[in-house]
Design a protein around this nucleic acid. Structure first.
Lengths: 168, 168
DNA sequence: CGAGATCGTATAGGTTGCTAAACGAATGAT
DNA sequence: ATCATTCGTTTAGCAACCTATACGATCTCG
């Protein structure tokens, strides 16, 4: 089971070098630091995610937002309410389907997003300070690959294999 | 600010491609999946981490374990108690310093660790199914770099820059 | 010995994030 | 018109994780 990389510099197979566990643990640390940075701007990491999505993709219905962020609709509402209360987004009924709420990023929201992005940048620079620019780009691209596969894959089909154990 | 990779396939600078946020979000997802897999073996991801550490490093005092896993001593106790109750680890007083508890991985603990590692392997194979073997090794090494820097750096000195905003 | 620090422990409380269930409003099909 | 479905919303409750604090036992140093 234990293998050695072609460079021979890092021993894989040691339990502590499991990529899945490292991803989970480092992600937890990243989430903590991002929260610290974002709370200064009155946001949670999830809310920042939502604002960024609206910026990148334009106005979206809440169902679409829920799908993109992989959160339950009832949870999304609780994230959106403070954003609307602060005037960072607006909810307007879609005239073509009046059940839908079109969520739109306001100018204030764009500004807040810029501020939060700057704070987030500092966190990232600190998190990844041990990486060269090339390595950081590599990491980013690898994470993009994994994320895109998960978001696409999870919506098109179910779990492809395993997973029997459920506690409750 | 927005840059394009040499391959031209992935746009950086889009908010949704921020490596810090992706790390946090993907890490959250990874933690969820690992928990699902490990609860089938009666472990939490943190407990798996502890068992793996004991396997890789041999017997450790709880202070050392707390340092390595970056958890408060009082939290570590609550993770260790069930492990000892199940006979996966033993706590013995260190004769050279009777304040210390030497935590030792038992044979049963090694077996449990093997089982859990197999389950974890399945989760990782699914998580990283979109990556080639080379890419997966790359990702692993990059994560190792980041983790080693954070664990070393956080114990040697404080936060090197930024970080003023504290809520409380 | 006595003061102070360290190690392990117990507990109380808070935060984050999630699930589940129920509901009103609007749509669409028959 | 009626029924099923979808969208957004509300609320209650749960699980994981962390912090802070206090305590007993033990070591170290003067």
């Amino acid at each position: 089971m234990t293998s050695v990389t072609s460079t021979g510099r890092v021993l894989l197979g040691e339990h502590r070098n499991s990529p899945g566990l490292m991803l989970a643990l480092l992600g937890h640390e990243a989430m903590r630091r991002l929260r610290d940075a974002h709370t200064a701007n009155g946001l949670t990491p999830r809310q920042f995610h939502v604002l960024g999505l609206l910026h990148d993709r334009g106005p979206l219905a809440q169902t679409d937002l829920a799908t993109e962020t992989d959160t339950a609709a009832s949870v999304l509402v609780t994230q959106l309410n403070p954003l609307e209360a602060e005037g960072l987004v607006t909810r307007t009924r879609d005239p073509r389907d009046r059940r839908r709420h079109l969520v739109v990023l306001t100018d204030a929201g764009q500004q807040r997003l810029r501020d939060a992005a700057a704070a987030q940048q500092e966190v990232e620079d600190d998190l990844f300070r041990s990486l060269t620019d090339t390595q950081r780009s590599q990491l980013t691209q690898l994470l993009v690959l994994v994320r895109d596969d998960l978001t696409d894959g999870n919506e098109h089909c179910g779990t492809p294999a395993s997973l029997d154990g459920k506690t409750s």
